[in-house]
């Protein structure tokens, strides 16, 4: 059965950008239908790692396999949805025109545009030109484009940044629902309380994985009260015993 293949398999991944090593020999896996969180300070390599998963990043070493195929291969382009941190939608088109276009490009059914607009709660502004949306609405339009065509893997870079707690709650409910339907999600965040909602967490710092565990394992292993404290604990631990 296909689902026995992990949704994401990364082994020995190294990326160098502008002479600086941004990812240092990363290895991890994500099973199908799971929600994997990427957490770490700004500049730790989360976005670069996500670019590797969708196959737009030049890679120096290692392998990245997605849904059983090399990342970025042609067969994956309808099966992987990607939303960048900086919204990549057309500011001079309405929300619906954007979704119609990206949907057509993906070969998604025409009804998909309205479905994803509802899913991210933009039904009231579907005919609004994207350039006139608020920051939070813009983020959701960007997210909606990634949901088109029901991809099997969703790679979402900071999808909830700039959203109020209610909307954030709604989006996480959507993510859990998608995962319940078998979609695999890789979600980055720098908000630790969001990290607690994932099935598995990669704590990243300076291009390395500090920890790869469930949120509960992390707090239990470190004896910390919350994930923030657990993260700090791991950083100190590493500083004391350089590998």
């Amino acid at each position: 059965m296909m689902s026995s293949v992990p949704a994401v398999e990364v082994a020995g991944l190294r990326v160098v950008r502008g002479g600086k090593t941004v990812l240092r020999d990363l290895s991890f896996e994500a099973p199908r239908g799971s929600v994997l969180g990427l957490v770490g300070p700004s500049g730790c390599g989360k976005t670069t790692l996500m670019r590797c998963l969708v196959g737009v990043q030049i890679v120096q070493a290692g392998t990245v396999r997605v849904l059983g195929e090399p990342a970025g291969s042609r067969g994956l382009r309808r099966r992987v949805g990607y939303s960048t941190q900086i919204p990549a939608v057309y500011a001079d088109l309405s929300v619906r025109e954007n979704m119609r276009y990206f949907g057509a490009v993906l070969g998604a059914p025409r009804t998909d545009a309205d479905r994803v607009i509802e899913e991210v709660g933009l039904g009231g502004s579907r005919d609004q030109v994207v350039g006139t949306l608020s920051g939070g609405q813009l983020n959701r339009a960007n997210l909606a484009a990634a949901l088109l065509g029901d991809p099997e893997l969703l790679v979402l870079d900071e999808p909830t940044v700039g959203l109020d707690p209610v909307l954030r709650e709604e989006l996480w409910a959507l993510f859990r629902e998608l995962s319940g339907r078998g979609t695999t999600l890789v979600v980055s965040s720098h908000v630790m309380d969001e990290a607690g909602r994932t099935d598995r967490l990669l704590l990243m710092r300076e291009g390395e994985i500090l920890a790869d565990a469930t949120p509960r394992e992390l707090t239990e292993r470190t004896g910390a009260a919350d994930l923030d404290a657990a993260f700090l604990h791991l950083i100190h631990e590493r500083a004391e015993s350089p590998a």
């Binding site: 382009r77 990607y82 960048t84 919204p87 990549a88 939608v89 500011a91 990206f102 490009v105 484009a145």
Partner: peptide, 13 residues
């Protein structure tokens, strides 16, 4: 620069 080209490059375009 707006990222839409990169988004398109992750699609069958």
């Amino acid at each position: 620069t707006g990222g839409t080209l990169e988004r398109l490059m992750t699609t069958p375009t």
